[in-house]
Design a protein around this nucleic acid. Structure first.
Length: 573
RNA sequence: GCGCCCGUAGCUCAACUGGAUAGAGCAUCCGCCUUCUAAGCGGACGGUUGCAGGUUCGAGCCCUGCCGGGCGCGCCA
């Protein structure tokens, strides 16, 4: 079972071959001119270039060979040498039925499933979750779901930030204040860390004590370890709760500390391989390469204080993952600004033989900005906690629902659950509808609007389909064979067919916005269909059954799309 | 200073990696509810793709140089 594009592609490729041309030129894609065709092939242009021929003439010969195919309603050459294809209604009906019957709503699985580890979220013991963590969580969760959807074996790892200098800072701060470790709260941590970080910048003596504490913690000093596990315990449960509220859940809650026991042996291994070098009191691995445009700094493996740096931990984590899950691919969903760091780690891993080229990939993303175009801050200029952000969006979602008089008949609990779903949808869809690499501007009013390209709109449309199907069930109306006829049905069937392209593009580019775009297009196509084609009110039982089957296929594909994006539609709103 | 990314409609963003007339949403204006959720649908308006060259049948996309913005550049993560 494959999509229409692929089926037409093989027919067109065969025509290329019959003309003595490269069959790979027969690739077919959705038409740029929906007014002229459903699909098009640009291969005649490339063929003409290679063979110094006339593209229009080649296109005409291809068209002659494709004439009369039962899959096609029309085929013609156009423009400088395009082959335009219009699909027969029979094929559209057949394909829509496939989508309706398919567990994946017409999407395909990968040919060879891989073990993939997605490293995302990156919550930190010392710091509260703030808006900076939002994108990693949203994008990473979606990529995890996307890869799993296509059949890979996937694990999501929170890769908890529970090691390194920040821990030394906290230990030093707690001891200086003489706090009782047993009574430490999340609020203490959230207060102590920023203060300690600031003090370390201003006061070199304090900084040195914190660095020493870091090294001693990593060296296994018992009282520091005890204090440290208290930090981890306090913040992990809070972080789990925060993430879960966002619909973000991890398979692994590994931390940087889990890689720590592997570090001594790894350092020895690097030394034995001749990769380690003494430099300015530290030990480094040089990763610069011939022909680099810029000078990539070496990876710092052991600091002059004797402690592990974040590159060390990242490298050891690769070793750890190699031993446990042995992934074919590790995706690091981390801020784009850390690109150089990952390049350093990846190169060091390749040099040491911990991972091959291409097995490690940094999935960078831009920042979420405020109206001023700078990374999002509170009105007072501080960092906005994720918890407060979600509360803010949920408040707005509640207000929007009331404003529109939606959900009035729901119980208070159901209303609250709906408001939360709307809020999460608003936040996540706004993020995922942009390409991850670009930064975007946070705009509460726009994100929570039910109009336009928003999460709430998608939820609303999904709920409309559910409502329709519920009503059909009450009336005893059943779905039946699909017979695409009306223009709106035709458009809808084409859109259902396009799901696989969107899924594959999102997968290949690690770019969930392709799914977001598709979901929006599908919702719109359904809405046009819904407006143009009465479903329950038609007289012909066959037509009603066909349209119900289309609606069911839409609902399935919409819900799968939402699921990949990490959203969930309520039953009613 | 070196390097990376970005600059597309008034605003927020796309553009299947070189193809036809650069698309959506918001905003503005005009239509459509006795009919399955109108928070919907249809239509109109809106562009020298930052600027200047180059490569070719063809450039928002590739190359060069400017202008403007963001970010990174060894002991934080």
């Amino acid at each position: 079972m494959s999509d229409i594009r692929a089926r037409l592609g093989s027919a067109v490729s065969a025509a290329f071959e019959a003309e003595g041309l490269d069959p790979s030129l027969g690739r077919v894609s959705a038409s740029d001119r929906p007014d002229l065709a459903d699909f098009q092939c640009n291969g005649a242009l490339a063929a003409a270039k290679a063979a110094r021929g006339n593209p229009r003439e080649i296109a005409s010969r291809l068209v002659a060979r494709l004439q009369g195919l039962p899959e096609l309603e029309a085929v013609e050459s156009a423009g400088p040498g395009f082959v335009n294809l219009k699909v027969a209604l029979g094929l559209l009906s057949e394909r829509a039925a496939e989508v309706a019957a398919s567990d994946l709503a017409g999407a395909s699985r990968v040919a060879a499933p891989r073990r993939v580890l997605v490293d995302y979220g990156g919550p930190n013991v010392a710091k509260p979750m703030h808006v900076g963590h939002l994108r990693a969580a949203i994008i990473g969760e979606s990529i995890k779901r996307l890869f799993r959807f296509r059949g890979d074996e996937v694990l999501g790892d929170a890769h908890f930030g529970d090691w390194g200098f920040q821990m030394g800072l906290l230990i030093t701060a707690v001891l200086d204040e003489g706090l009782d470790p047993a009574r430490l709260t999340l609020e203490d941590l959230e207060r102590l860390y920023p203060a300690a970080a600031a003090q370390a910048k201003a006061d070199p003596a304090f900084r040195d004590r914190a660095r020493k504490a870091t090294a001693e913690l990593q060296g296994g000093r018992a009282d520091y370890r005890a204090l440290w596990s208290r930090f981890v315990e306090v913040s992990r449960s809070a972080l789990k709760r925060e993430f879960h509220a966002l619909g973000v859940d991890f398979d692994l809650w590994k931390g940087e500390s889990d890689a720590d026991p592997l570090i001594p042996a790894m350092v020895e291994d690097l030394r034995a391989k001749g990769l380690l070098e003494h430099d300015q009191g530290a030990e480094i691995v040089r990763v610069a390469r011939e022909g680099d445009k810029r000078e990539l700094p070496p990876l710092l493996v052991v600091s002059s204080e004797g402690s592990a740096m974040y590159g060390t931990t990242d490298l050891a984590t690769i070793v750890d993952r190699r031993k446990s899950f042995d992934p074919d691919l590790i995706l690091y969903v981390v801020d784009q600004r850390q690109a150089d760091h990952f390049e350093q780690v990846f190169r060091a891993a390749a040099l040491a033989g911990y991972a091959r080229e291409g097995e490690l990939e940094h999935i960078g993303f831009g920042t979420m900005n405020g109206a001023d175009g700078k990374p999002f801050k509170t009105r007072e200029g501080g960092v906005l906690k994720l918890h407060d952000l979600i509360a803010m969006v949920t408040d707005k979602a509640r207000a929007r629902l009331r404003e529109a008089d939606l959900g009035a008949e729901l119980s208070p609990e159901a209303f609250e659950a709906t408001a939360h779903k709307v809020a999460v949808a608003a936040l996540k869809f706004a993020d995922l509808s942009n390409f991850r690499g670009t930064s975007y501007v946070f705009d509460l009013d726009r994100f929570t609007s039910f109009e336009g390209k928003t999460g709430p709109y998608l939820l609303y449309q999904t709920v409309r389909v559910k409502s329709l199907l519920r009503k059909a069930a009450e009336q005893g109306a059943e779905a039946g064979p699909i017979a695409v006829a009306e223009p709106a049905e035709r458009e809808l069937a084409l859109r259902l067919d396009a799901f696989d392209v969107a899924v594959c593009e999102a997968y290949d580019r690690r770019a969930p916005h392709a799914i977001a775009e598709h979901a929006y297009q599908l919702a719109q196509a359904f809405s046009r269909f819904y407006a143009a084609c009465p479903i329950l009110a038609v007289d012909l039982p066959g037509q009603r059954a066909s349209r119900l089957a289309l609606a069911q296929a839409v609902l399935k594909q919409l819900e799968l799309s939402l699921h990949i994006l990490g959203l969930e539609a309520p039953e009613r709103m």
